[in-house]
Simulated assay, not measured.
Amino acid sequence: MAEQEEKLGKTGINEEGEALEEEKSEVSQEGEVEKEKVEEASEEAKENDDTQEETPEKELPFPRATITNRLRENLAKGKQIKGQVKDEMNLWLGKMIQRIAEKMDSQPYTFVNYQMLKEAIAPYESIQEMDIEREQLVTGLERIKVDCDKLVEDIDKGSKRKVGALKLESDKLPFPKATITNKLRQHLSEGKQIKGPVKKGLNIWAGNIVKRVSEKMNSYKYNYVDGGMFRESIETYESIGEIEMEKERIIKQLESVKLSCDVLISEVQRKFVK
């Protein structure tokens, strides 16, 4: 900020000279405006046949004659300009300048310079590139959706792969059948039927869990096992539930991102129109 203000100070003398020239130019332009008003009055009766009431001159940001003459310079010769067009162009141009000023004013400096002006008006000069920008945005959002689908697919594949590789077969059951069955019934809805392979499979799996935890505790170089070793050995298993819940949350968030992308794509398609 200090560097820009210092630079501005160095050019102060030149700008004072430019300011004097601008004042002279403005005086000359005032005379031109008066001339334009006279010319406008002669054309008003012919062109202003709109039924809509004219906006009072004092409420317009620019002299009506100035806007009318600027329009004539860029319209085909002899084309009639309705009064509504003159006033709406006048008001609209005032709003455009307001937007530019507010954009420059948002900069954290005590001045506005030419670079800020260019940055403020640049978006309005790239209308021809709007189709390209729209396609880039839509393509990027579609890519995000594809990435979301890929992540969800990877999470699902990982779970399905584990299920497919799981084998719960053994000739010897580590726990009494009735014990496992009763424990299951305590946590299932009343009346729910338990298939035979479930009873056997859970029995074998529970035995495998005890085996793994025991092997983990046995890996400690002590001649005993205690509560601390046990808690460390089961820590991973205790976090599995949270991990599975987190996976579900991630999938829901990814689906939400996809929906947001669909909304954004719709908005881009609707608003990025030349």
Results as ranks from 00 to 15, higher is better:
1 M>E: 00
2 A>I: 01
10 K>W: 07
10 K>V: 03
12 G>M: 09
12 G>R: 14
13 I>W: 07
16 E>L: 07
19 A>K: 06
21 E>K: 10
21 E>C: 13
22 E>T: 12
29 Q>P: 09
29 Q>G: 15
32 E>K: 12
36 E>M: 11
50 D>M: 06
52 Q>R: 09
52 Q>F: 10
53 E>Q: 09
54 E>R: 09
56 P>K: 08
57 E>F: 02
59 E>A: 15
60 L>F: 08
60 L>I: 07
60 L>K: 06
61 P>Y: 04
63 P>R: 04
66 T>N: 12
67 I>A: 12
76 A>I: 14
77 K>T: 14
79 K>V: 13
80 Q>L: 11
81 I>A: 06
84 Q>N: 00
84 Q>C: 03
86 K>R: 12
87 D>V: 06
88 E>R: 13
88 E>K: 13
89 M>Q: 11
89 M>E: 05
89 M>V: 14
91 L>W: 03
92 W>Q: 06
93 L>H: 02
94 G>A: 08
95 K>F: 11
96 M>V: 10
100 I>D: 00
101 A>D: 08
104 M>A: 10
106 S>N: 15
106 S>T: 13
106 S>Y: 03
109 Y>H: 10
112 V>F: 09
112 V>R: 07
113 N>E: 01
113 N>M: 03
116 M>R: 03
122 A>E: 06
125 E>N: 02
126 S>L: 13
128 Q>L: 12
128 Q>S: 15
130 M>A: 14
131 D>A: 15
131 D>K: 13
131 D>G: 15
140 G>R: 08
143 R>M: 13
143 R>K: 15
147 D>L: 00
151 L>C: 05
157 K>S: 10
158 G>C: 08
159 S>C: 06
159 S>A: 12
161 R>P: 07
167 K>Q: 05
168 L>V: 00
174 P>E: 02
175 F>R: 00
175 F>Q: 03
178 A>G: 11
178 A>H: 02
180 I>F: 00
182 N>K: 08
182 N>C: 05
182 N>R: 08
186 Q>W: 13
197 P>R: 10
197 P>V: 12
198 V>W: 02
201 G>W: 01
202 L>D: 02
203 N>L: 04
212 R>A: 11
215 E>Q: 07
217 M>N: 06
218 N>E: 14
218 N>C: 10
222 Y>N: 12
227 G>M: 15
230 F>S: 00
232 E>P: 05
233 S>V: 10
236 T>E: 06
239 S>F: 02
243 I>M: 14
249 R>I: 09
249 R>Q: 15
251 I>C: 06
252 K>H: 00
257 V>C: 05
257 V>G: 00
262 D>N: 10
263 V>Q: 14
267 E>P: 04
268 V>L: 03
272 F>P: 02
274 K>D: 13
274 K>A: 10
